[in-house]
Amino acid sequence: MAIVKSELIKQLKKSYPNFLTRDLTKIIDIVIKEIKVSLKRNEGVELRGFGTFRTNIQKASIRRNPKTGEKVSVPKKQTIKWKMSKDLFKKLNNEKE
């Protein structure tokens, strides 16, 4: 199951009961907004212990519609690449440091 923003806020509320829910919501919104703004400016975002976000340019190409076999032109576009940190990789794979 994926965690959604409301679940993240509930978890933070359990860990930090002195914070108001609206303040936690605003903090999460600010962090997400700043990540988006940085990526929009083609800057990388590094969250230590979690991973890095970088933009990537996907070249224009001609692909096939799998249903009809018809050729489809796909324009150039920007995508986001995420790479997990070594710490997160080790935690996910139960490796000790």
Rank of each mutant, 00 (worst) to 15 (best):
T68G: 07
N18S: 13
A2T: 10
G49H: 05
W82L: 10
V72P: 07
M1E: 05
G44K: 14
S6T: 14
T68H: 04
Q78A: 08
E7F: 00
W82G: 03
M1C: 01
F50T: 03
I62A: 07
G51W: 08
G51K: 03
L47T: 02
P75K: 15
L39M: 06
K10S: 12
I9S: 02
R54N: 13
E7C: 00
L47N: 03
M84I: 08
S6N: 11
E70S: 09
S15E: 08
V45T: 04
D87T: 10
L20F: 10
L88I: 00
T21Y: 15
R48E: 05
T68F: 06
S85A: 09
L12Q: 00
T52I: 09
T52A: 13
T21A: 04
L24C: 01
E43G: 03
A60W: 06
E7W: 00
R22M: 10
D29A: 07
I3L: 13
L88D: 01
G44I: 02
Q58S: 13
M1T: 07
L8W: 03
L12P: 01
P17E: 02
S61Y: 08
D87K: 10
K33C: 06
R22D: 15
E70V: 11
F53E: 11
K33S: 14
T52N: 10
P66Q: 01
D23N: 15
S61C: 11
E34N: 15
P66N: 01
K77S: 13
G51M: 04
G69A: 07
G69Q: 06
L88M: 11
D87W: 04
V74G: 03
S73F: 10
E95Y: 08
P75Y: 05
K59H: 11
V72F: 09
Q78S: 13
L88W: 12
P75N: 13
I62D: 06
G69I: 06
G49Q: 03
F19H: 13
I35R: 07
S61F: 04
I62W: 09
R63L: 06
D87V: 09
Y16D: 04
Q11K: 08
V45F: 12
E7A: 08
I57E: 12
S61V: 04
K71C: 00
S61T: 12
F53N: 04
K13N: 08
L47R: 02
L8E: 02
